[in-house]
Design a protein around this nucleic acid. Sequence first.
DNA 1: CTTGACACGTGTACAGCGTACGCCTACTTT
DNA 2: AAAGTAGGCGTACGCTGTACACGTGTCAAG
Lengths: 226, 226
Amino acid sequence: MRAAVALADRVGIEALSMRKLADELGVVPMALYKHVANREELLDGMVEAIVGEIDPPTAGADWKSAVRGRVLSARRALQRHPWARQAMETRTTKTPAVLDYMDSFIGMFRAGGFSIDLTHHVMHAIGGRMWGFTQELFDDAPRPGTAPRAPMPPEAQAAMMQQMAARYPNILAVAMASAHEDSAVGQGCDDQFEFEFALDTLLDGFERLHQQGWTSARARGQATGS
Amino acid sequence: MRAAVALADRVGIEALSMRKLADELGVVPMALYKHVANREELLDGMVEAIVGEIDPPTAGADWKSAVRGRVLSARRALQRHPWARQAMETRTTKTPAVLDYMDSFIGMFRAGGFSIDLTHHVMHAIGGRMWGFTQELFDDAPRPGTAPRAPMPPEAQAAMMQQMAARYPNILAVAMASAHEDSAVGQGCDDQFEFEFALDTLLDGFERLHQQGWTSARARGQATGS
DNA sequence: CTTGACACGTGTACAGCGTACGCCTACTTT
DNA sequence: AAAGTAGGCGTACGCTGTACACGTGTCAAG
């Protein structure tokens, strides 16, 4: 796994093949399949490793600087591994380290007193920026070419829920809240709304900066008002 | 090209191979290479086609609703072709339709009276959201595995500049301004700054919403303050 | 001390991929 | 009529992921 990350750092993600990695390890290609089921799972593992490099949230900080610091840490991790962004974007399954990160990320807003509802929208808005770059989050839309996962037996689902509740309380809270909301849409969350929420938050910010005659804050040595 | 888009719509981008596309057209694979140099160029062309589907900016609207409408149009185009997002993210060369779109996008802010400087940062901040999703823009960082493009003879470069100036005046204006800025960094633009600018714009927006006791605007039938 | 399970590596094989190279045919332009 | 050109064809090469069967070594239970 570490070797895969190192190799990708050197040759990029496209050039990382099972054969090249096997060569690197002085081993025959098929040997790798004793450790991962397939190439996809290898990429999953690599992403896990990168997510693990992100610093934990600074304890005792206000929500804003906690979030800010965490995102910048994620960005640093991504910059160390330029292939990681693309790899994350193509990943479809959410692995434990990713869920951990999301859960604790949600936790930062909750600890700052954000309502579940606002937290939910805010998570969408910050989207992949939370990874040090940007992507749509919660993107469960079935893409063509990806087979729908096999349905699980109900008791297994229940057990899964238990596990989830214990390990990812914040994710669950948000998911539950958005599931039975008294909105017009009813079940699930409204992608269009989330997109416009993020867009408008940015546009409103731009408007404010423009109205107050913003000139390069860089020269003044700070970013925005924060 | 149209056939490629249609096929990708059906089977996804991963499953779109030169051979499948050739089959679709009732033709032998190598026949495709009379129309495109390679698969990359095919993808470039497909992205061009999608960008061409985005509506032109509404004439006579204020900058904010012009930008808003355009982004939502881009989003609609992307939703019609779920593979397009990923395709655009892997594209490295900026093709004419893409440059046209960027130029006219910059133009919307300029027409709204934004300074070149603010426009620049704002373009970074809105990033790929301008595409109906989100990505880092102006991302010219050389990735491993991509050969550096062959350098051009200087007179060709000059001619290129002429063309650029005529066709993409807004892009050029922004590029020029950021090239010789009196900042500490000097030449080029500061990725880190741009990232933090966008992040802080969002965080400031979140803070404002939180402070004014935001509750689901969806129930009230509007997004944010706009 | 033997036996079997298990983790891990090997070798061979196959189908699918992008595409280099050379050849052929039909149509347009002169 | 001649020549160029746009497009399609066939073959072939090296690369990919991975299925399947077959070793080995380590270790616990009989």
